[in-house]
Design a protein around this nucleic acid. Structure first.
Lengths: 139, 139
DNA sequence: CTCACGCCTAGAGTTCGCTCCAGGTCGAGT
DNA sequence: ACTCGACCTGGAGCGAACTCTAGGCGTGAG
């Protein structure tokens, strides 16, 4: 068994602040209760770090903390609710796909605007009033 | 010239609430001052709608309102600051790419967990303690 | 005439996800 | 003996992006 980690060490490894770690704990985002040292300091296991990393990934893809808590609860409950976990993950997968679509839409808009502005700055002056990139096209 | 639109109509077309539209206006997110009817009601042009749509796309790809305002200001200023606009758009393009990477990371994690759970539910019971999907693999 | 409706303003309230503070404990180093 | 740094708690505070409320106006249908 590996050495227990302090909150500071976990903060470094997960890119969460120590404040956020305590906050996540209060919010019930940890599957197991965090162990404590004799003097009351938190002791995290590698499993805790792994789970927190999963949490940060879910967060970075836009899952609200409330839903991560729900997922955590399901895991804590143990066997039997796998269909619910599946449903939750599938729902999130859908949202990720929607987000990706949104990013792609915006990305092509930006690519387009960049092209227009770059043309403009390279002297392809079409002489129309300059406002947003879109307006170059009209001329 | 096309008919001016009421705030309600613009709300429908942009998927922003009327509250949000007034809020955006207060925050200086509109390039031109919104026209008003005789009795003080807002009258939006198709250009306004187009710009607001651009704003919603930028928002949906995670650009903060403060930065949209900055971009709006640059456009309102007129010719001469195209390099700044380019820089702003390029910076946002980078962030979009990072976000996409984050989504992809999370997506493959989810795909993996889904596969593990689905196997499990289809009777591929590997007999280990059931917690998060990851733990199925160990067995 | 009255009623509902859509709009107006100024400003308060809400949700989310932290972030920070005050005040305190502990252990190691000088 | 003293100080420093990392940790503890409970609770306040914050920034973002809305969202809603109160109170009021103008117009059109019944």
């Amino acid at each position: 068994m590996t050495r227990a980690l302090t909150i500071g060490e976990v903060a470094e490894r997960t890119d969460l602040s120590v404040h956020a770690l305590r906050f996540y704990e209060r919010e019930g985002l940890l599957v197991d209760e965090v162990r404590r040292s004799a003097n009351g300091r938190r002791l995290y296991s590698e499993d805790d770090v792994a789970w927190l990393t999963t949490c940060t990934w879910l967060r970075s893809s836009g899952m609200p903390l409330a839903e991560i808590r729900r997922y955590t609860d399901l895991i804590r409950e143990g066997r039997g609710n796998e269909p619910e976990r599946l449903a939750l993950l599938r729902a999130h997968r859908e949202r990720i796909q929607e987000q990706r679509a949104a990013l792609d839409r915006c990305m092509s808009m930006i690519t387009h605007k960049l092209a227009v502005y770059e043309d403009h700055l390279n002297g392809v002056d079409n002489g129309c009033i300059v406002r947003d990139a879109e307006e170059f096209e009209a001329g």
